[in-house]
Each structure stands twice: as structure tokens, then as C-alpha cells.
Design a protein around this nucleic acid. Structure first.
Lengths: 294, 294
DNA sequence: TCTGTTTGATAATTCATAGTTATCAATTAA
DNA sequence: TTAATTGATAACTATGAATTATCAAACAGA
């Protein structure tokens, strides 16, 4: 059975193997009897085996014919399933979506989205990739990612950006720091503290925004350390190496045992903004369906 | 994917999905580039999905194309396996053989044959059907059996018969019978005993042969019971209901506990003959291969 | 035995269509 | 800008798959 064999011939054989009567089978196939005879002869020649014994007055399957019948039935199921699945993939109700995210997105929006999508689109599966903001944008452009969760203000041509969550910042300070939520008035109370910040290559717009908090407060901070991992920052704070400003949601999964406390910066105008981004230059039905869940 | 789809198109798509270049793929397929374009367009129309993005200057697979590629690879393996198996079936090195046998054949020839065939033809499987002689011949004619083990002298037109084993008969008598192997001279010593014989519908030629033993011995036996099951006969003998004459091999699997003894009739001219029979009107490659093992 | 019916195969013909060549439009590199 | 490369399109050709008409064999009934 090579690729010269045509599925049509196999189907004709299948019908014939059920009817065991050339004229009747041909009728079912909307075909003339000689046409069917030719098809079966061709099939037999291509396969190099005899499929049917047309002795005298009745047609019967040879062992080969019997086996081929079974196989064509299996094949038929395979083809049906494949074309159904192809339609699903084309419509975006089945498939895989590559998602990128910055660490701080996993705390807030993503867990909810997974739940909603899973119930509405049970056959779409996600692959999550924790990546820096700029890496995500590059990956979107190369079509390595379908959807990105970033903290950015703007994106290159062809990458659409949509703000999906806004939250206030919080100060993270050691447990034994003299200032606490009650005595906190303004950020300038920390003008003498060292600061631990997210690296500017986490996102330059994010970095700029943090710095604007300090300039609004009227001082330029001493920056002792930088990291892009929230947990690293928290550990540095715990060990008295400085204080930090992070999106508030990141502080929600700080354990009791760690020696830090949190001061919420609800009153300042700067907000941590989480956005989703995707490439618009290609049609992406899976993405469309997922976005419609949001 | 319906039966209008041709395997050729799927193969073209497979090559194209590897090359991702219409001209190169077409060359590999010994086809002109527009021809390939047409094939792929046709395939896409039939499936109702886009398989390839031909944006600008490079061709790439859509998610559907990706999936179809996988499926066609699976399909390719399926077709290869199927056609290989079809050839095996046609050559008779793979398949099932329906074998009929009279009970007394299982003791002698059949177990050996199975062993020999299994090593030489590991992919041929047997189905064994214990049947009366005449039923086997009918089954051969209806092509319900491929091979029969019978005790017959002749068969109808179209059924070939080959003698494969000859053995002497044995008398089976109760343990407490006055005559034993040492004191046995001739069958006429049993002229006063009742006889338990195989029914004449087991095989009329077999029955005639047994009766000729008696006429040679110069008496006509009292026949008390008939059966076609060796074990039944043995049990009747054990209980003093008569003595029996059976092909010797049948006595070989008589257990120690049963109260009968055996007198071998080596000197008389009558022999129990086992033959194989098969239908010659149809070519049967599996049977040919099996017979060549004998 | 003859006739009529049914079977699948064959021969000659027609027609659909798959593949060809020639060409185009779009993109890219020099 | 030009030349080269890409896949798509249009018109045409030629293969071959279908058709119709017919045949030979087998069988049933008279």
C-alpha cells in the first residue's frame, strides 16, 4: 500500500467487502459496475495480492481481503478522528498555548485565568514560562510565545498591549525597623535607608516608575542591591541589607516565619500595572478563544 | 478528511512540511511547483483548514499543519505495516488455519506437528476442532476447515487424502479378564465376549475394517455398546460391560488407576490408518506452507 | 437441451482533471 | 533600481478514470 493507492479505492473496497456484489456495491458508490471492477483490479495490482475470489457466481473475501477490510475500517476511524481534530485546532478549541509571565503575575491574575479557561476550553492546554519582560516581547515576535504577562508601558509595532490589573506598591522592611504601618506617613521617612530594587533590565519602565516614587518624595535613594527575584529581595531585607518596594501582591505569599513586615503604599499615585501582550500579525484562534475568557 | 482525499496529496504535504519550500519539495516529488501548489490547495479545501502560512518569503506550518504532519507520519507507518502484513498473508506465512481432527489424532501426530510448524512458521496460528470424520469432510467442502485429520479410506471429489500414520489395533479388556498379553493367541479367544465399538457413523470404513478383524477370526461379535469417545469406551470396559478394539495410540494415555489392560494386536493385517485431508479446489498458501512442514 | 437471467470482465470511447508551461506579483538582496 | 527568488495564477495538454456497450460463464427453469 503506497501513496499511489487512493483512499477512494479503499472505500470502494470497503463497500464491496460488505456487499460482496459488484453491481450492488457500484450502485451504492454511485459508480458503474465496470468502474468498480477496474478500481478493485487496480487496488489488487498495487497491493500485489488478491482481495476477492470472484469464482463463478459469487464473490467472497480472501484472507487478505478480510484483513484489509479490518484495516480500512481502522483507517476510516483514524481519518474521521483526524479531520475532526483538525477542525478543532483550526477553530482554536483544541491545542496548546505558550504563555510567558513575570514572576509577580503568578500571584495575581494567572491562577484565576487558568481556572476559568479550563472549564470553558477544556482541550486547550497551557505551557507557562517564567521570563523577564523584554524576553517575553522578543519571544512574542518570534512566535515562541502566544501570550505574555508583562509589566511594561509600551511594546513594539505588532505587539498589542492590554492592561489587566493595577495594584499599589508596598514597602518591605525588616521586622525590627522602627517605622511600621501605624507610624508611617510618607516615603521620605526612608530617605536614610538603603534600597533593594528590581534590576532595571527587569523592565526599564518599571524601574523608572519606582524611581519616580522617590523623586516625588523628594530624595534620591541609596540603592544597595538589585535582583529580579522577589524572594531574594525579601531575604536581603530580612537580613537588614535594606528595604524594598514591590507590587503589593508579591507580599501576599510571604510566610509568617520570615522576619519582614509590609507597609502598603496606597496613597501614592504610582501603581504597579500588569498587562497582557500578544502578537497581532498572525491570526491565532486559540489565543482569541483564551482572550475571550478574560 | 474524507475518501476524496488522496494519499498522494498527503504524501506531498508530508514532503512539503519537511522542506517548507514549494519548489524544492516539488522537485523531490518529481512534480512541477504549480502542481504541488494545486495539490496543497486542494487538500486544504477538502480539510477546510489552512495547513501552511505562505507569508511573504517563507513557508511555515500552522498548528493544523503541524498536527496533520504527525498524523500523516502515523498513517504512513500504518500503511507500510498493513501492506507488509498483506504480503505475508498472501504468501501464507501469517494467518490462521482451521484444523479438524478425530479424537484419536491428538494422541499421535498433531502434537508433534504443532511443534514443528510453530518454529518454522511462528506467525501461523491453529484452531483445533474435534469433529467426527464425516463432519470434517463436509467442513472442508464448505471451506470451514483448511485441514482435517480423519480415519477414512476415500473422500469425495475435490478433497485430497494423504495417509500419514499407520498403527496396530489393541484390545482393551478389564483388569480381571482371564486372558492377558502372555496367554493371548488370537482374537477368537474373545468370541464369547461382548464388544464395545466406535459407532459406525464415526466412519463407516473404519467400522467395516473392525468388523473384518472379527470375520478373519471366524466369528461375529456380540456388540453391546457403541460410542465415539475413547474415554467412554474405556470406562464401559472397566465396568465389565464388554471389551473393545481401538487404535493402539489411544491406549497410551490410559491412567494407572483405571481398571483395564491392553492386548496389542500386532500380528493381524488390519491397521488403524490416520490420514490428512484438504480441499484442493482453492489455492491455500497457508495450508501449503503447513503441509510442507510435515 | 435450450432459453433467459444474472454474474463480473473486457473493449472502446468520452470526459474530467491533474499536471504541465508560461507568466505574474510580491518580496528581498545587491 | 535591478535581478533573483518566492508561491500563485491562467491556459493548455494529456493522462487515465469513468462511461456505455458488449461478452462469456454460470445457473435456473421450462
Amino acid at each position: 500500500m503506497n501513496y499511489q493507492t487512493e483512499l477512494r479505492h479503499l472505500y470502494s473496497f470497503l463497500v464491496l467487502s460488505e456487499e460482496l456484489h459488484f453491481r450492488k456495491a457500484a450502485e451504492k458508490l454511485f459508480l458503474s459496475q465496470p468502474g468498480l471492477s477496474k478500481q478493485i483490479q487496480l487496488l489488487e495490482n498495487q497491493l500485489g495480492v488478491t482481495l476477492l475470489d470472484r469464482n463463478q457466481r459469487n464473490v467472497s473475501l480472501t484472507p487478505c481481503g478480510h484483513y484489509l477490510k479490518q484495516q480500512v475500517e481502522i483507517l476510516s476511524g483514524f481519518l474521521t478522528k483526524t479531520s475532526a481534530k483538525l477542525k478543532n485546532i483550526a477553530e482554536g478549541v483544541e491545542g496548546e498555548l505558550q504563555i510567558g509571565f513575570v514572576g509577580s503575575a503568578m500571584q495575581t491574575v494567572i491562577p484565576q485565568l487558568i481556572k476559568t479557561c479550563n472549564t470553558k476550553l477544556p482541550n486547550i492546554h497551557f505551557e507557562f514560562n517564567e521570563m523577564a519582560n523584554h524576553s517575553q516581547i522578543e519571544a512574542l515576535q518570534k512566535h515562541q510565545l502566544d501570550l505574555a504577562f508583562v509589566r511594561l508601558d509600551k511594546t513594539p509595532e505588532g505587539i498589542h498591549l492590554d492592561q489587566i490589573a493595577e495594584e499599589h506598591f508596598s514597602l518591605v522592611i525588616p521586622k525590627d525597623h522602627p517605622i511600621h504601618q501605624k507610624t508611617f506617613k510618607s516615603v521620605d521617612q526612608f530617605s536614610e535607608d538603603s534600597f533593594i530594587l528590581f534590576s532595571s533590565d527587569y523592565s526599564s519602565t518599571y524601574y523608572t516608575k519606582i524611581m519616580s516614587i522617590f523623586s516625588d518624595a523628594g530624595f534620591y535613594p541609596k540603592v544597595s542591591h538589585k535582583s529580579i527575584h522577589a524572594n531574594t529581595i525579601f531575604r536581603l531585607v530580612e537580613n537588614g541589607l535594606g528595604v524594598a518596594i514591590v507590587p503589593h501582591s508579591l507580599t501576599l505569599d510571604i510566610g509568617q516565619s520570615i522576619g519582614i513586615k509590609v507597609i502598603q503604599l496606597k496613597s501614592i499615585p504610582q501603581k504597579a500595572i500588569l498587562s497582557i501582550a500578544w502578537n497581532t500579525e498572525r491570526k491565532n484562534p486559540i489565543l482569541e478563544n483564551v482572550l475571550s475568557c478574560f
